[in-house]
Simulated assay, not measured.
Amino acid sequence: MNLSFIIGIFAGFGLVIYGIMESGTDATQIYNSFINFPSMFITFGGAISATIMSVPVKYLKDIPKNMKVLMKKEKINLNLYIDAIEELAKEARLKGLLILEEKVNQIELKDEFLRYCVMLIVDAIEPTKVRAQIENEIDCIEARHSSAWKVFDTLGSFGPAFGMLGTLIGLINMLANMSADGGAEALGKGMAVALVTTFYGSVLTNMICAPISNRLKAKHDEELVAKELIMEGVLSIQSGENPKYIREKLNSYITYNERGLTSTTNDEESTGKKPKRGLGRKAKA
């Protein structure tokens, strides 16, 4: 489970609620000021209805699947992709590209995009066409993924708008029913009810929609880096480059501290000892 997202959203709502409780005089006043069901219907109901009208039904059906992706904790380990590509490069260098059709199904890393790219070079397609086809596949993946956050971007854009609409409705009703007998007290209560819809709209946009959309975009960017790494690795295999050089080239996609973590872990598991670290280049992890 993605604990950072859970902690963030609970902390955000908790701090807002704490601020509301501290600013109020008593529980009854706070309840009457911030809990207004007609305002909720206008803001949340209106924003959701407008979103349903704005996006295709397919996007709405994908919301549970996208939320499941959002809550995944694991981060893509690019070292595993580099190891797999280096292994494929060694096999191709020794036995030719045709062996990769069998080898790609035997490696521990199961990735359909990697398999798809490898099959393109196994089929002896020209390198320029392979690159064009992979780039087109990445563009299509990006277009499909964008539907995940478009729903929340759209919902977030309607939140403040319907919040303002609710405020206008409240002001109209307040002014229409205002009389000299009520005085400033009645005016203040009416203004509070009118403004609470704007509060709901801000909460919907800034506490719910924007964080979800940004996290989905971050997940997409992370996956896109892995796919670009695969593309460069597969094209390097097709051009017959040295496996060691391919690894060094693909290492540019990760930080210095992340390089070689997989091989270091494997050495520790096989020997039961941590490798000695020296100075200079040997100490680089």
Rank of each mutant, 00 (worst) to 15 (best):
M1E: 02
L3E: 05
I6Q: 07
I7S: 10
G8F: 01
F10L: 11
G12Q: 09
G12H: 10
F13N: 05
G14F: 07
L15S: 01
L15Y: 12
L15F: 14
V16F: 02
S23A: 15
G24A: 14
T25D: 06
A27G: 10
Q29L: 12
I30P: 06
Y31Q: 13
I35L: 15
N36P: 11
F37A: 14
S39F: 00
F41W: 07
T43D: 05
G45L: 12
V55R: 08
L60E: 08
D62I: 00
K65W: 04
K65F: 01
K65H: 10
K73G: 12
I76Q: 10
I82R: 03
I82S: 10
D83N: 09
D83T: 13
D83L: 12
A84R: 03
A84W: 00
A89E: 03
K90S: 04
R93H: 05
G96S: 07
L97Q: 08
I99L: 09
L100S: 07
V104W: 11
K110I: 11
D111Y: 02
Y116K: 15
C117T: 10
V118A: 01
I121M: 07
I125Q: 13
E126A: 14
K129T: 05
V130R: 02
R131Y: 00
R131G: 00
N136S: 12
N136L: 12
C140D: 13
A143K: 15
R144C: 01
S146W: 10
W149D: 15
F152I: 04
T154G: 08
T154L: 07
L155Q: 06
S157H: 04
G159M: 06
P160E: 13
G163D: 00
M164V: 07
T167A: 04
T167L: 02
L171N: 03
I172A: 02
I172C: 06
A176R: 06
M178D: 05
A184I: 13
E185C: 01
E185S: 10
A186E: 01
G188R: 06
M191D: 04
A194Q: 05
V196R: 03
T198L: 08
F199V: 11
Y200D: 03
Y200N: 05
G201A: 11
N206P: 07
N206L: 05
N206Q: 13
N206A: 04
A210P: 00
P211D: 12
I212D: 03
N214H: 11
N214W: 03
A218R: 01
A218E: 15
K219I: 09
E222C: 01
E222S: 07
E223I: 06
L224W: 01
L224P: 00
L224K: 15
K227Q: 07
S236T: 08
I237C: 01
N242C: 09
N242P: 11
P243F: 10
I246V: 14
R247H: 03
N251P: 04
N251Q: 13
S252G: 02
Y256D: 15
T265Q: 14
N266V: 14
E268W: 05
R281F: 04
R281W: 04
K282Q: 11
A283W: 01
K284M: 12
